[in-house]
Structures are given as structure tokens and as C-alpha cells.
Design a protein around this nucleic acid. Structure first.
Lengths: 345, 345
DNA sequence: TTGAAAGCGATACCAG
DNA sequence: CTGGTATCGCTTTCAA
């Protein structure tokens, strides 16, 4: 409805050329204090707002960055978003969170996002096809990969120490005497799944124990995945004394199913999660888990992107940053009663 | 890194004019099947992607829509986002979720978002200053307001029936014999707060009871708000037999504080929330609450925006849509033991 | 320190 | 059904 004022009107009102107005806005070259004031006043009066399309057409920058997440309702990702905001907002960038959600793979949506010419994009590299990765490499868009060590040529990545974190929680269970430990993992092809499986094996190896393949079932990173996982595990055997889950949502679902079967937690079966989402402390019994530093991951990813964009470090060597995790012990893995250690194994 | 191919190269490769390529892309005018195929092939071969800046510069549309939320870590909003995606994705729009988060008011960020020239923006109207609202009216950007009946001239809005929903849960508590009912509300100035307070009063009025002002405390829509709210209520009196909360996060926080004081839920004090976030079913005791149809709100908002953008209904009268809510009774408000009704009031 | 003018890459109008 | 071309609103180079 507004008469849509352009840079020309501003120039006229201020009695200067459009170039000068542009320079005042960008600060790309010195402008005398007097003209700067005239221009700023005109901008204010006319409520002038530069057209971002026109701007990006010339400058090849959009001052906006996207976070492409597989599932925005998974509380882990909003925290990553907040971490990115911490860094990007002060730097004048707008962060857009895009949910890949229902999309089969992020392939189609990835194209969509790359087409938008965001200056930078943060995303999970796993689930990306060879094709997608090349598309990223070919595009102008700076990318930082999250939580995965998949290589995208020329892209930095930041991950948390999934292998170590998962090994820690498994070691914790072993140390409390649990031995019949089932593992409900996420999608088998997902990168976090592979890392957490690795951690699982490492913990067993470190304790001099071996893992039966049938102790691991693959589902999805959701509550429903937890339900399915419990069914699958109990179809194989029924004497589990611990179930470790690839994330908190799975664990919460698993606890629901266990309760449905009349199994007591942690007395009969200990349960652990991963991520330490808010709900982990709220469920009953409260859930032992591993803190996945989501917000810090976001901050780090944002810093990496900015350092690439601002030129200082535009062409430095690829960086791989690993953030530490922390075991959070709660009620769901309280030590087994004395009686159990006798009966088992 | 790619040699950045433009529409001209595509035209050359296909042996047609740039206009024709453009028409094939937009479908704005008939194109013969033969040329369409040539053009599509050229686009594919060259991996051509139109520059959105250039495009929006001429067409004045960006094919993207923003959802501006006050706190992306509040699980209510991701659900709204998913609902919007349901509708927008098939229509070819990209949805960007922008977190106002730490921003004081959404004022500054609102400007930022309006400057980006999204085709449409969904946001909460409360918390907007008179100035902000006029800015919206003046801008080209179509806006739909969420969960609030604040008028933005020319903008549609969609809300859930907060007044009715809240009255229902309060009526439920009254019907189980609770009379000393405290209310932990959100920020006093927030619009949802006002509506829920109204529902609170209505339920009392309908039962022929009156509300003491001191029964209502204002905090914030977070778990910490719940903690603070309990402290504030118990500073006034200590014989509460029910506490209703303006949302689930507050309720969860309140339950934590009550437990800290050795108060049993629901035996001593019943607690209720609002929104029915996932955690409400997971906490112990599980939380009685009101389902706030977040996803449906998102869908409705998206439909409203699209109907405005696609021209059919571009200038129809302003629409106000109210969605029904649903009471979800769980453990936290189980009927008071026989003994209590004798002792109270 | 400032101005003039040449594009950036698409769309949309005007012809044919 | 197709082509030519002015134009969107800005940034950037070139001159002064």
C-alpha cells in the first residue's frame, strides 16, 4: 500500500546522488559527516528500505543464512537454531530455519534451498546423496555440516563426540552390573546411528565383552521408534536388563512400551537416552542420557560460516570441530538390586 | 565455483529466446510441447537455477513465507511450522522460521523480516506496538496474525478458542470440588494471558463464584515462570487445592516447585496446563491440559496467506478464524480424596 | 569526497 | 505461439 520508495527518491530528498546514498548504507567508502546526516534523515523520513532482491542481484550476497533440519519438532534442532542466532543476529544476518520434514531425503528441498542463494547453509550431511554433495560443492553457497563426519568437499563440519559419548553411557551401564544390554538405534543409514553403534561396540570391547548382532535393532529417531524397538528386542529374547537408545525420544517411547509390558524401570531394566532434551528430566523415572551440546553446536557452526563469508578465512583449510559431551546420570539407570546380579548371565 | 549459468545461456542452448525460457519456467503463457521439451532439456543439462533476486526484482514476489515466533524452543511453534509446511510446500513456497528470541519485543526483528520482502508473514500480533502494526499495514507484505484478536488493519487472523478452552479446564477443576484455585499466568501484557484470564473468570462466574485478584500471579511462559509462580502464590496463602497454569511449561515448572515443597499432586493440589505439548503426557503425574491445535493453526494460517497471495481472494474482507480446543484430562487433576472437601473453605 | 552510468538476471509488455 | 526490449532497484566501476 505504501508508495514504495526507492533509492532515487532518497537521493533526491537528500540532494545527493544515488551512489552516495548507497555508500552511506554500505559504508563502503568515506562519506562526509554532513551528507551522511542528510541522507540518514531522508531515509528515516521516507521510511526507505532497500530491496533485497535488487541488492543481492548486484552484490551477490543476501545477508541471510539457512539452517536445514530433518525434523523441526525434534527439540534438538531448535536449540541449534538458537545457538546460531546467538552469533548471526549481532552480525546482521537473518537466520531461517527450514524443515525438511516429510521430504524424502533432503534432496528436493536441498535444491530449493540452494536456489534461494542463502549466503550460507548449515545442515546434516548424512542422508545426502553423492549427487547432493556435488551440488553443494558446485554451488556458490557456503555450507557447514552438522553432527557428521561425512566429507563435503571444501565444507567445514562441527559434530559432537557421538562415539565417545555413547561409549560413556554404555560403560556406565556395564559398571552397574548390567550385561544383557539391548540397543535401539535410529535409521540404519543415518550417520549418527553409525557413530553411536561404534560407541556401543567400543564400550563392550573396552570391557573385554563381545556384542551379539541381534542385540541391536534399527528403527527411527522418534517415540514410535522406541515402541517398535522394544517389540523387536523382546521378539528376540526377554531377559534384557538394560536398553540403551540412540536418542531421548526413542528412550521415552521405549519406557512407555516397557511399562506397558509390566516391566519396572530401573529395577528390571535400565534405560538410557541421548541428547538430554528438556523432556529427559521430566519423564518418570527421569532419564539417564548424554548431553549433546546443541546450542554450542549452533554457535560453532555459525562462527565457521561467518569466518568463511567475511573473507578473513574464506579459503583456509577445511575445519573439523568436535565438541565434547557429558554423561547425565538420572533415575532410569539406578543400580540393579543385589538379587539381579546373581540371577543373570 | 560453477560458471554460474543464466537464462541467456539456456535460451541459446535451446535455440529459443529468453522470453520463451521464462515462460516455460513460469507457465504464464502457452508454449508448444516441442519447445518446452527443448528448454527443459537445456535447463537440466546446464543445471540452470534462476536467480531469486533478479526474479523478485521484476515479479515482486519471492515465493517464500516467514513464520516469526517469539521462542522457537517452545514446542508449540515448531508444530505451527509443520502445519504451515503441510500447505506451503505443495504450493511451491519455502517456509522460513525466524526466532525473535532474545529480541526485546519483536520490533527490531520485525523490520528486518519485512525488509526481506517475504510474500507473507505469520506472527503473533500481541507484543506489537502501534508503530509495528502500522509498519505492517504500510508494507507490501501480507500478514496473518496468530493466536490473538489484536487487529492489524487488513490482516486476517487465526486463533484457538483460548477463552473457552481455559474456562473448560477451570470448570473441570471446580466440578471435582476444588475451590482454592490459584492461577499462574504468563506475561501480563501478552494477549494469550488476557484471554486465558478471561476464561478463568468466566468459569468462576458460570459457577456463581467470585475470583480474588490475589489468586492470579503473572510470570512468564516458561518452566522458570512456573517456579516463580508457585513462590508468589504461596507467599499469599498456603491452602491452595488447585493451581491452573497458562501453559504446559509453566505447569511443569510449578509441579517441580510443589514437589520441592513436599506437596502431593493431585492429592494435595491439582495442577493443569494448556497447549498439550508432548511433554505433558510424559511428566509424572501426567498433566491435565487443553489441546491447542497448533498444527491446524499453522495449516489455517498458511491457507489464509495463500488465498490472499493467489489473487482469488486478494481483497476480500478480513477473516477471523477461531479453532476449537479440547480438554485432556490426565492424572494431575484426579479427584480430590473424600477427606479434603470437608476441610476446605 | 562525490556523481554518472553501466550492468546484475530475470519478467512482462508490446509486437509479430 | 514466439521474439525483442524496457525495466525492476540497487551496487560498483570509472571519472571527476
Amino acid at each position: 500500500m505504501a508508495p514504495e520508495v526507492g533509492i532515487a527518491e532518497v537521493a533526491r530528498a537528500a540532494g545527493v546522488s544515488v551512489s552516495t546514498v548507497s555508500q552511506v548504507l554500505s559504508g563502503n567508502r568515506p562519506v562526509s559527516e554532513a551528507t551522511r546526516r542528510k541522507v540518514t534523515a531522508a531515509i528515516e523520513n521516507l521510511d526507505y528500505r532497500p530491496h533485497p532482491g535488487a541488492r543481492s542481484l548486484r552484490s551477490r550476497r543476501t545477508e541471510s543464512i539457512a539452517l536445514l533440519v530433518p525434523d523441526i519438532t525434534n527439540p534438538f534442532y531448535p536449540l541449534v537454531a538458537v545457538g546460531m542466532q546467538d552469533i548471526l543476529m549481532p552480525a546482521g544476518y537473518l537466520l531461517s530455519v527450514v524443515d525438511a520434514g516429510s521430504q524424502t531425503g533432503s534432496g528436493h528441498l536441498l535444491r530449493h534451498v540452494l536456489e534461494r542463494r542463502f549466503d550460507g547453509v548449515a545442515l546434516h550431511a548424512d542422508g545426502l546423496s553423492e549427487n547432493d554433495r556435488r551440488r553443494i560443492t558446485d554451488s556458490q553457497t557456503r555450507v557447514v555440516a552438522l553432527g557428521s563426519d561425512i566429507e563435503i568437499e571444501g565444507s567445514d563440519y562441527v559434530e559432537s563426540d557421538d562415539v565417545g559419548g555413547f561409549a560413556t553411557v554404555v560403560a556406565h551401564l556395564l559398571s552397574t552390573g548390567r550385561r544383557a544390554i539391548g540397543f535401539i538405534a535410529g535409521e540404519e543409514v543415518a550417520d549418527p546411528t553409525k557413530l553411536r553403534v561404534r560407541g556401543f561396540r567400543e564400550a563392550f570391547a573396552a570391557a573385554g565383552l563381545s556384542v551379539a548382532e541381534s542385540d541391536i535393532v534399527f528403527t527411527s529417531f522418534t517415540r514410535e521408534g522406541g515402541h517398535a524397538g522394544v517389540e523387536a528386542l523382546y521378539a528376540r529374547r526377554t531377559d534384557w536388563d538394560a536398553i540403551v537408545c540412540a536418542n531421548d525420544l526413542i528412550a521415552i517411547g521405549a519406557m512407555e512400551s516397557l511399562r506397558g509390558r509390566g516391566i519396572r524401570i530401573p529395577d528390571d531394566v535400565a534405560v538410557s537416552g541421548y541428547d538430554d532434551i528438556e523432556a529427559a528430566a521430566l519423564v518418570h523415572p527421569s532419564l539417564t542420557t548424554v548431553e549433546n551440546p546443541a546450542r554450542e553446536i549452533g554457535r560453532t557452526a555459525a562462527r565457521l560460516l561467518l569466518s568463511r563469508l567475511s573473507g578473513d578465512n574464506a579459503d583456509g583449510p577445511t575445519q573439523h570441530i568436535t565438541l565434547a559431551t557429558r554423561l547425565v546420570v538420572r533415575e532410569s539407570t539406578a543400580s540393579a538390586p543385589e538379587t539381579r546380579t546373581k540371577g543373570m548371565q
